[in-house]
Amino acid sequence: MEQATATTTTAPPRTDTFAHAHAVAGIVVAELGADQLPFALELEEDFPSGWRIHLKFRQSRAEGLLAFASLVDVPVTRAFVEYGVHFEVLVRIKDVEVRGSALVSPDVAARLEGEPTPVDPMPEPEAAPPVPLGASVVAAVPAVTPITVADGEE
């Protein structure tokens, strides 16, 4: 038998496995309070960057996203979108990309950021005064239009 003459070293454990990402997700969730938990947690594999975790927070628990941001000491980004305000936190924890997001109404966004409720920039236009029924166009049109049958048709 031949003996190895060179010393063997063990390779460091791989961090791009599902089990590793799952463990990181467990660590993150364990640090959040019961009323700050996300409503969904997704683990996805991305070829160039390994596994990633997406924490999704509902509007009613958006404080959890802010708690997560303070936990990892990362600022919350904010973007106005068609349906409200989108908050997002992006960080790497133990070589795993972790993203938290929440879509909230402008009122909730203002409350979360400690600002007064925003004033609607475009007030509703004033409604036209009501028209009396006898003066409207509808009053001049008969409610029932009689149908007459021509001779020989049934």
Rank of each mutant, 00 (worst) to 15 (best):
111 R>S: 05
71 L>M: 02
112 L>N: 00
121 P>E: 07
87 F>P: 14
38 P>T: 03
79 A>W: 03
52 R>G: 09
9 T>V: 08
71 L>P: 04
87 F>T: 08
101 S>D: 11
93 I>M: 11
83 Y>T: 06
14 R>L: 09
112 L>K: 01
29 V>Q: 08
34 A>G: 09
98 V>W: 04
27 I>S: 05
43 L>H: 11
61 R>G: 10
81 V>F: 02
40 A>L: 07
23 A>R: 14
64 G>K: 00
43 L>G: 04
49 S>G: 05
45 E>F: 13
106 P>Y: 09
141 V>Y: 06
52 R>V: 01
141 V>M: 12
148 T>Y: 07
84 G>S: 09
38 P>Q: 02
22 H>C: 04
105 S>V: 09
67 A>Q: 05
134 G>F: 07
121 P>A: 13
61 R>W: 04
122 M>K: 15
108 V>M: 10
5 T>M: 07
88 E>W: 10
133 L>A: 15
36 Q>L: 10
16 D>T: 03
4 A>W: 09
81 V>K: 08
48 P>L: 02
54 H>P: 00
58 R>S: 15
116 P>T: 10
97 E>G: 03
67 A>P: 02
105 S>T: 15
115 E>Q: 12
139 A>L: 14
16 D>W: 04
74 V>M: 10
9 T>C: 08
9 T>K: 06
43 L>Y: 05
104 V>F: 06
73 D>H: 07
93 I>L: 10
153 E>T: 12
57 F>M: 00
142 P>Y: 03
118 P>C: 11
84 G>Q: 03
54 H>S: 04
121 P>L: 14
99 R>Q: 00
102 A>G: 06
114 G>W: 04
109 A>H: 05
47 F>H: 11
85 V>H: 04
69 A>K: 06
67 A>I: 00
50 G>L: 01
97 E>H: 12
32 L>M: 01
83 Y>D: 13
83 Y>P: 09
146 P>Q: 07
42 E>T: 05
25 A>I: 05
14 R>K: 14
140 A>R: 13
93 I>E: 03
56 K>W: 06
100 G>V: 00
66 L>Y: 01
84 G>K: 05
94 K>D: 02
73 D>P: 01
44 E>Q: 09
25 A>M: 12
83 Y>C: 05
139 A>H: 15
36 Q>H: 11
86 H>A: 01
